[in-house]
């Protein structure tokens, strides 16, 4: 599946903020979100690059809290995909709900 015509592409960078990092549930959420776009999605951590639509590949990244991830997408909806994915990660996958602050002293 290589690009035949001039494809749109987009890149974003985001930090993992949820405490548990990219464990099973966030990886599942990330995969579901990426799979909703037609574009190819790649997640890059320290030069290691995996398919954003593969939960197993995402899990092997073992991205802990504080990890910088690069999101790359290629395809007609590349910008939208990158925007949605960076937002999802930046919001901590909606985890740690409850409103109270989580700071450690």
């Amino acid at each position: 599946m290589t690009a035949e015509k001039s494809e749109r592409s987009a890149t974003g960078e985001v930090t993992v903020i949820n405490e548990q990092g990219l464990h099973a549930r966030p990886a599942h959420a990330l995969m579901m979100c990426a799979s909703g776009f037609q574009s190819n999605v790649e997640i890059v951590k320290d030069g290691e690059c995996v398919d954003g639509k593969s939960i197993l590949s995402l899990l092997t990244l073992a991205a802990a809290r504080g990890t910088r991830l690069v999101i790359r997408a290629r395809g007609d909806d590349a910008e939208e995909a990158v925007a949605a994915l960076t937002d999802l990660i930046a919001r901590g996958f909606g985890e740690d709900g409850g409103g109270a602050s989580d700071g450690t002293k």
Partner: peptide, 8 residues
């Protein structure tokens, strides 16, 4: 559990 439980 597949993840650390949340406060909720």
């Amino acid at each position: 559990a597949a993840r650390e439980p949340t406060e909720d």
